[in-house]
Nucleic acid binder design. Sequence first.
DNA 1: CGTTCGTTTGAGAAACCTCAAGGTCTGTGG
DNA 2: CCACAGACCTTGAGGTTTCTCAAACGAACG
Lengths: 189, 189
Amino acid sequence: MLPNGGRQIMDFQLPGDFLGLRGIIFGSADHSIEAATHVEASQLAASDVRDAIGNSPRLASAVLRAIARNEAMVLEHLVNVGRRSGEERLAHLLLELHARLKLRGLADKKGFDCPLTQFHLADALGLSAVHVNRVLRHLREAALVTFQNGRVDFDNIDSIQQLAGFDAAYLHQNETLRHSGSEILISMQ
Amino acid sequence: MLPNGGRQIMDFQLPGDFLGLRGIIFGSADHSIEAATHVEASQLAASDVRDAIGNSPRLASAVLRAIARNEAMVLEHLVNVGRRSGEERLAHLLLELHARLKLRGLADKKGFDCPLTQFHLADALGLSAVHVNRVLRHLREAALVTFQNGRVDFDNIDSIQQLAGFDAAYLHQNETLRHSGSEILISMQ
DNA sequence: CGTTCGTTTGAGAAACCTCAAGGTCTGTGG
DNA sequence: CCACAGACCTTGAGGTTTCTCAAACGAACG
């Protein structure tokens, strides 16, 4: 949140994501987390996590890579907001969400369920909600992607990837750090 | 660099900064580094760095905090580009550079030497160089900050901090990870 | 003395914003 | 069952910000 009432959404956390890692490391957070859906989460004591990291080089390395991956994502969002047009930005965000959800088995080839409002999209993209609405219309009329009734459907995923300049490499999806129950899971493929 | 020829500068590395840490962790980089001035750097073998991190929990922890700090900075840049006006963005960037340089003894209270061109600023802020020029004029005419002949001078640092919504907390300046010669230095205050 | 790089300024166009109004859907209380 | 409120989406009109194209200027350099 900014003093003038504006909001910048830095990322959308998906099921299985580790929340607030940077806050644990620094002992303070420069952001807040808001639930867009019903959420189930388990809490880990910051000191426990720090101890575990200190005692296990393997875990430390995994956390290191997790944060680096996070930074790569935020960086891509910076590129998105800084150097792409409204259509490209929106397309890029939807493609990113699709790629990340697909890995979790929460999306199919055509699209995915998306509980976000146009206000959420606007605050993530540095646009106004009104403009997001118009851009969505353009994308729909261009038969690229449809976002209606909480569902995103790609009509032509190849051409929309080209439009957005989307390349999933920055997501580093071959490895993930997750928390489940009260444990931290490292999964590499 | 983007396919359409655009460029997004994610950060300006200052003397003493550790370069390409994320590239070492992932074995590949999603960005490139360009020298804006004469640069002296020493190279570390990626495998050596990885080994060192694996063998020293203390070093691993420091690297962890360094990356987290990096992410916080990129994140602030995202907020900057996504939700602030041209004047606010530019003021914010100049204030960040000032704060970071001051810590290294490379700036005084009034300002600092800045070798960047207006093209550099534009590519960091998601603006055009022409617009950067006009915004600089506004800031100069408002007696807030002057950027001329490679020198940035703040006329009224309090009011420009307020204009930009700048708070140096995100820089986490009380600790740094640096490389010097062929060593990695951890310094905490 | 010409070239190159960076800055400055003007003019018109495009992208995007704000304000405003109306529409749809959903849940809720009477 | 109906009326109402709230949240979200949609569309229009007009304004602001920012962009692109273009040209001119100054400084540094060989």
